[in-house]
């Protein structure tokens, strides 16, 4: 748990370096920071090679791209791909589904790890705490294929629950292939799989809060709720905001594999999201140009979300992911 101390305390330090660095000349700063720069170099190179260089490929959003003809052999088509995209109702279905799922996950999923972390923190017995932690971390390590199969086996039309209902003459219910509740199902699965795992960072944030504050608060007569409200929550706030912004950045990535596996059961009307739209349009149907245009739009919207969330964070006096 190195995060424990590191996370909240790193920030003020970097604050100071920033301020002093503006005064020193460039070369001097370079020399001073050389070890740090060397350390960050491998990650920066990986990022450059595998994130920024591939971005250049986005030019195919303006091409009728055919892979075996390549960049040079494919025709430039201007904004045709975007026009085709915007006039395609299935694209808008995908956008709308993505937005709905993003919203649901933000509202229903995001708070769960925070609550779990707070609850876990109240468990006094270390053994019990460790045990519960291990159990709730476990589903994170299962692949979506297994999780979807598990849900199918238990809640599916011929799953344990429905079989029991049918054999006892009761009417079965349908959650696995019901388009109306599909998005809730997705969110439920995501919570079941990853909420436990998500507690780690919040537990670290809680652990980093000075125990002296609790002691003083208790001396001053604060109850459990008071301590939570006035100490725990404010102590976690920077991390919560940071996580929220990071989450927003890829919030349009709502779970490709999870959805792909279940898309056929409820149909694209309920389950097509931007990522699956790109997959079916581009990889399967060979419309690389249009699919890239869709992917590009998603990237732009995500960037906007991060910037907006960060601005909001600044307004509330938080640091966000970068400083003003």
């Amino acid at each position: 748990m190195t995060l424990k101390q590191a996370l909240p305390r790193v920030a003020p330090q970097s604050d100071e370096t920033r301020q002093t660095s503006q005064k020193a000349p460039f070369l001097a700063r370079l020399w001073r920071d050389a070890p740090l720069l060397v350390m960050v170099a491998p990650a920066a190179i990986v990022l450059l090679l595998f994130t920024y260089v591939p971005l250049l490929g986005s030019v195919i959003a303006w091409m009728d791209y055919v892979p075996f003809l390549g960049f040079t052999g494919s025709d430039w088509v201007g904004w045709d791909n975007f026009t085709a995209l915007f006039s395609d109702p299935s694209f808008w279905t995908a956008v709308w589904n993505t937005v709905q799922i993003t919203f649901l996950q933000l509202v229903l999923f995001f708070p769960v790890p925070i609550l779990l972390a707070v609850l876990l923190n109240t468990v006094a017995l270390p053994v019990a705490k460790k045990f519960v932690q291990s159990v709730i971390y476990l589903p994170h390590f299962l692949s979506w294929v297994i999780i979807v199969a598990l849900f199918q086996q238990v809640l599916g039309g011929a799953g344990i629950v429905n079989r029991f209902l049918i054999t006892h003459g009761l009417s079965p219910f349908d959650v696995m292939s019901n388009p109306d509740t599909f998005k809730l199902l997705l969110t439920t699965q995501a919570i079941w799989k990853d909420a436990g795992w998500g507690t780690i960072i919040f537990l670290a944030a809680i652990a980093a809060i000075d125990p002296g504050l609790y002691e003083s608060a208790t001396m001053d007569g604060a109850g459990a709720w008071g301590r939570f409200w006035h100490i725990t929550l404010p102590g976690m706030r920077p991390i919560i905001v940071l996580m929220l912004i990071l989450r927003l950045g890829d919030s349009l990535t709502v779970g490709f594999e999870q959805i792909l596996l279940q898309r056929d059961a409820v149909g694209p009307g309920a389950a097509e999201v931007l990522d699956t739209f790109v997959y079916y349009n581009g990889v399967v149907d060979g419309n690389w140009g249009t699919a890239t245009a869709a992917g590009l739009l998603k990237g732009v919207v995500s960037l906007f979300l991060v910037l907006a969330a960060n601005k909001l964070a600044h307004r509330f006096g938080e640091e966000g992911v970068y400083k003003r």
Binding site: G156, G157, A158, A265
Partner: peptide
């Protein structure tokens, strides 16, 4: 049709 038809299709 079998209750799992939506998934059995594939």
């Amino acid at each position: 049709f079998h209750p799992d038809t939506p998934t059995l299709m594939t």
